[in-house]
């Protein structure tokens, strides 16, 4: 069972590269915000999986809860901040 958790954590961290692409190359700022939000929601699960692997779930659950809180607050603050800058990030190209 531990091997299964190990490999699913590994798979989860591999999957995190797809939103990372969106967070780095996203055409607009809000696209990057979506990427960061998706990475954060995966990290919450990954933290608990790490806790299972190390056998310290009770400690890592608190860290995961704090991370979920931080993810939410960060997305709210960033979107409240960026919506003032009108016209700064119109999509380029066509």
């Amino acid at each position: 069972m531990d091997t299964l958790f190990y490999y699913s954590g590994f798979y989860l961290s591999l999957i995190m590269f797809l939103p990372l692409y969106r967070a780095i190359f996203g055409p607009t700022v809000v696209d990057r915000l979506i990427g960061v939000n998706a990475i954060g929601s995966k990290t919450t699960v990954l933290l608990i999986l790490i806790g299972l692997i190390y056998g310290r779930v009770d400690m890592f659950v608190d860290i995961a809860l704090a991370y979920a809180l931080l993810n939410f607050i960060a997305v709210l603050a960033a979107s409240r901040y960026f919506h003032k800058k009108k016209g700064l990030y119109e999509e380029s190209a066509d």
Binding site: T28, V30, V75, L76, S79, R80, H83, L88, Y89
Partner: peptide
């Protein structure tokens, strides 16, 4: 997460709408 995810989604959507995308 189920309580906050609609709020976060709506905040991002609102930022996009106000920016005129």
């Amino acid at each position: 997460v189920y309580l906050t995810s609609p709020t976060a989604t709506h905040a991002i959507m609102d930022a996009g709408v106000r920016a005129g995308l």
